[in-house]
């Protein structure tokens, strides 16, 4: 190796790690600054620069205040109800439809696939104009169940993930079970559904995070404070509390924690789920 090669090699290593560190810094900076501010007392917040570390990293007062002011206990309960039901519903609906579409040829099979595919082209927010009226007529506004049903109805990605997964399960499995006298319902619930586990985990995470973070429909349809979700509970901090950033940041950090925990626990599934969803789309 010549000297020039050596210089090139070290330059490459430098560029590589500089890019990594720089962009990780850019990604974390807004969040870290929030964490710093969340630990500051009112006096500290007013008198120090935002990037100065707080005097005590154990000052959890803001978190307690934010949690109580925004009634987050209630919000977490609501979000938990919504996420659990929507995720369970989506997994059931998605896997059942995928089973039918993948295992049986029947007139309309292609049509159903195309109807769902076409639906992905219609951006949800564009449709809200008339969806709102529909929700109003159904009496779904300001009810948790209305919002839950709406959230379940607009899921296409999980159907695709399940169809993809079914393609890799041999049909001979169903066939032999049928020969042994099992009904199709039994085949699906007893034999195939347990095999779908990896796909189910992927769908649960993607859908769960998506529903937990949803705020646009939530603020249209969940007006009453008692049924607000976690993302919406942050709206408490607009208005008179709008400049108390130490309190706001604490609230923001609280809402991030569930997503962070899920992310750390299921990193691999999230990455692979995204990749498989994107390749199909």
């Amino acid at each position: 190796m010549t000297v020039g090669d050596n210089v090139k090699k070290y330059l490459w290593i430098f560029i590589k790690y500089f890019s990594m560190i720089f962009f990780s810094f850019v990604s974390l900076l807004p969040i870290v600054s929030c964490v710093i501010t969340a630990f500051k007392t009112d006096a500290e917040y007013q008198n120090t620069n935002v990037m100065t570390p707080p005097e005590s990293w154990l000052n959890f007062q803001n978190f307690i205040d934010a949690f109580q002011k925004a009634d987050m206990g209630r919000a977490f309960l609501n979000s938990a109800i919504v996420v659990v039901i929507v995720v369970a519903g989506s997994v059931m609906i998605g896997s059942m439809l995928a089973y039918v579409l993948n295992r049986f040829t029947f007139p309309g099979n292609g049509l159903i696939r195309n109807l769902f595919l076409f639906a992905t082209l219609l951006p949800g927010i564009a449709m809200q104009v008339s969806t709102y009226q529909l929700m109003y007529q159904l009496g779904f506004i300001n009810h948790l169940y209305g919002y839950i049903i709406l959230m379940m109805g607009t899921d296409v990605i999980s159907i695709y993930i399940f169809i993809q997964f079914f393609e890799n399960i041999p049909t001979s499995l169903d066939e032999s079970a049928y020969m042994d006298g099992a009904s199709y319902v039994t085949i699906f619930f007893r034999i195939l559904f347990p095999l779908l586990k990896p796909a189910i985990v992927t769908c649960m995470i993607l859908k769960g995070v998506g529903v937990y973070n949803e705020y646009y429909s939530a603020q249209l349809y969940l007006v009453d404070k008692k049924i607000q979700t976690v993302a919406m509970s942050l709206y408490t901090f607009t208005g008179p509390l709008g400049s108390k950033y130490n309190l706001i940041c604490a609230g923001v950090i609280i809402t991030l924690l569930p997503a962070l925990i899920i992310f750390i626990a299921f990193q691999k599934q999230i990455y692979s789920g995204l990749t498989s969803g994107a390749v199909k789309g």
């Binding site: 807004p30 969040i31 973070n213 901090f237 809402t255 991030l256 899920i262």
Partner: peptide, 10 residues
Amino acid sequence: LINGIAIGFI
């Protein structure tokens, strides 16, 4: 993975 409203405040 951060929700939209939190991003707004951040």
